[in-house]
């Protein structure tokens, strides 16, 4: 069976991402990679909690007077929704509906871009207030944690867009199905990390 063979919805396997050896390796490998990523973010969270509100003596910035919950909430909703739309995309992939998958991925990308826009707005706002990367240990740890997540969003978006553009003309096959699948795994992971950021950084920062 050729990796690039065409299928019908009937002949398309139930788990296309796992039906080749390469696909299985990719999926297992990616889950393991996410395990490493989890530790990476855990480290960043721990550092943030240790350095939260710490700065040069007399620093006026604290999580309380800096963060705005409504903005963070909107960002959370955007990202959560995008996670849902990527689930729809995967649903269509499993049903061999290429167009449906691409469409839902496009929506996912748009929601992700919205999130990214708000994050950039938020960061520039802080910088204008004088809360910068170099201003304090708090600033360094905040921008590194949230920025690393932001970088993941950028990579995730670039990845999904690249997949969509690359495969636009060729449709689904067993070669690219695992690629779509792990890209969506990555997107879910980004979403989960954000939920923790929302809770630990924003919610626990503002509510006291």
């Amino acid at each position: 069976m050729n990796l690039k063979s065409k299928f019908t919805p009937q002949s398309w396997p139930e788990h296309p991402e796992l039906s080749t050896a390469e696909g299985k390796n990719k999926v297992v490998g990616f889950w393991i990679f996410l395990g490493g990523e989890t530790v990476l973010f855990a480290t960043l969270f721990a550092t943030f909690l240790a350095l939260k509100n710490k700065g040069p003596s007399g620093m006026e910035f604290t999580t309380q007077n800096l963060f705005e919950l409504p903005l963070a909430f909107i960002m959370t909703m955007l990202l959560l929704t995008s996670s849902l739309t990527s689930v729809y995309a995967m649903y269509h992939m499993k049903n061999y509906n290429f167009k449906g998958m691409q469409a839902w991925l496009a929506i996912t990308v748009l929601l992700g871009l919205g999130f990214l826009g708000l994050e950039i707005y938020e960061f520039t706002h802080y910088v204008h207030e004088g809360f910068t990367f170099s201003q304090s240990a708090f600033g360094s740890s905040f921008y590194t944690l949230v920025g690393t997540h932001g970088l993941h969003v950028v990579i995730g978006l670039a990845w999904i867009v690249l997949l969509m553009v690359r495969n636009a003309g060729r449709g689904l096959n067993l070669y690219n199905a695992p690629k779509y699948f792990i890209a969506s795994l990555y997107w879910h992971f980004i979403d989960v990390v954000w939920v923790f950021i929302f809770t630990v950084v924003y919610l626990m920062g503002v509510i006291k």
């Binding site: 990523e37 530790v39 480290t43 240990a137 360094s140 590194t144």
Partner: peptide, 26 residues
């Protein structure tokens, strides 16, 4: 990953002006 992060902190502190390890800056 913890080493990666630690090294990034060191790189940022030495090359890009962050303050993870500078106790005068918290």
């Amino acid at each position: 990953p913890p080493l990666t992060i630690g090294l990034f902190f060191l790189i940022f502190d030495r090359m890009f002006g962050s303050n993870f390890f500078d106790h005068t800056m918290g």
